[in-house]
């Protein structure tokens, strides 16, 4: 397995030929806030306000299939929420992961439903279980839990058992 690269510049240099990185850098060099290459998987951290532009760019670069949108709660670290996108390219047979860091004061970012309609359910799930809001989502409601449910269970401050 390839050596892990955890430094942004090293990753961008080693993977300069990657079409996603090349086109993202061509769009705006500041769009990639961080990058890492670990266990054979490429991860790019995207600036929060640019996720829709980044998704469009990555899609045009050949990463045509959105596999998954999910989130990780890094309580008590700030920014607290890490929204994770997995995108695969059918032609390149390669996968890329995008991160967007979202803080706990205003946990919101733009929805990528206009780019990939399949993000609809995934973003609703993240909203339901983490309380991260997706601006511009056509139907941002709870998907798993009842409408009147209190709290967002996958947050780390929500107990696994016992009383809330």
């Amino acid at each position: 397995m390839a050596e892990a690269l955890l430094d942004k510049d090293a990753v961008l240099e080693a993977h300069a030929a990657n079409p996603a990185i090349a086109s993202l850098l061509a769009l705006d060099p500041a769009i990639i806030a961080n990058a890492k290459f670990d266990r054979g998987e490429l991860t790019l951290t995207i600036a929060r306000e640019s996720i829709v532009a980044a998704a469009k760019t990555v899609q045009q670069a050949g990463y045509n299939f959105l596999e998954d949108v999910t989130c990780v709660d890094w309580l008590p670290r700030e920014p607290r929420f890490q929204v994770v996108y997995h995108i695969v390219s059918h032609s390149l047979k390669a996968r890329i992961r995008l991160h967007v860091m979202v803080d706990s004061i205003d946990p919101s970012l733009d929805s990528i439903v206009p780019v990939w309609p399949s993000a609809n359910f995934y973003e609703r799930e993240v909203f339901d279980l983490f309380g991260v809001r997706f601006a511009g989502h056509p139907n941002l409601r709870r998907i798993m839990l009842p409408e009147e449910w209190d709290g967002h269970p996958l947050r780390k401050d929500y107990p696994v058992e016992g009383y809330r």
């Binding site: 670990d38 266990r39 998987e41 991860t43 596999e67 998954d68 994770v84 997995h86 992961r97």
Partner: peptide, 20 residues
């Protein structure tokens, strides 16, 4: 520490596990 995404072809399609 780290994160991985592993996908397999399940009978219904792509099943993926994202583990952190």
């Amino acid at each position: 520490a780290g994160e991985v995404y592993q996908a397999v072809e399940s009978p219904r399609g792509e099943m993926g596990y994202y583990a952190v």
